[in-house]
Amino acid sequence: MEKVIIVKNLVKKFESFVANDNLTFDVFRGEIFGFLGANGAGKTTAMKILCGLSQPTSGELSVAGFDVYKQQDKIKANIGYMSQKFSLYEDLTVFENIQFYAGIYGLSNKEIDERALKLIEKLGMQAMRKKLVASLPLGWRQKLSFSIAIIHKPQIVFLDEPTGGVDPITRRQFWDLIYEAANDGITIFVTTHYMDEAEYCNRVSIMVDGRIEALDSPLNLKKQFNAENMNDVFIQLARKSKNKE
C-alpha cells in the first residue's frame, strides 16, 4: 500500500517540555487513521506539525509525498483541514463560505460554481444556500465544514476532534460523510475523544505522554489488550500516563 504520510523520529520540544517524543508511523492512502490520546498527550501538536501550523524540532516527515521542511507550499495545496471549531464564517451565507474557501484554494469560478452546486445537493442544503451560517444548527455546520475542507479534492484531510459537542445521531451521519470521502480515495487523519468513533477507523494510534503506545486496527488492538471495546484499550493505556489530570 502507498504511504501518504511518513513520520520518522518526530520530536517536538517546547523549551524543556517534550510534546512529541520520537514518533514514528505511516499512514496509507485512502485509510481512515484515528489519532487518539488523552488531553495533553501531544496529538494536537503532532497534527499541527503535519498541517504546517508548527515546525518540528527534529525528525523526517513527508506529507502527501512532500517534505515538511522544504515543500510546505505543495503540502498546503494537497491537504484539507477541519478544526473542532468548524471554522465557518457565521456572517457569510452557506454559498459564500463555499465560495470563499474554494477561492483561497485557487479554484476557478466555474469549478467553484460546479462543486458548490454538487456539495449543496449532496448535503440536501438547497433551501439553506442563501442562509447565513449563524442560523444553521450545529450538525449542519459540521457537515458543511467537512465538505468545504475537501472541496479542493485534497489527498489527505486532517480532522481535529470534528465531532465535539454533537449528538450521537448527527455524529453517525457525519461518519457516513467520512466513509464516502475515504471511498473517493481521500486519506482521513482524525483525532477524537469518542471511543465508539475509534471503532470506525481502519487503524488507530494511541498516544500517552508524547509517545505512541499502540498502533493497529481496532480489532487487533482489542485482541492484544484482551479488551471488549476500544474504551477498555484506551483506559488500560491511559493509566500508564505519569501526568494524570
Binding site: M82, S83, K85, L88, Y89, I104
Partner: peptide, 13 residues
C-alpha cells in the same frame, strides 16, 4: 477567536 485563522494558515495562502 473563531478558529478560522488556523484554517487560513493551513491553506495555500
Amino acid at each position: 477567536e473563531l478558529g478560522t485563522m488556523e484554517v487560513l494558515l493551513v491553506s495555500p495562502l
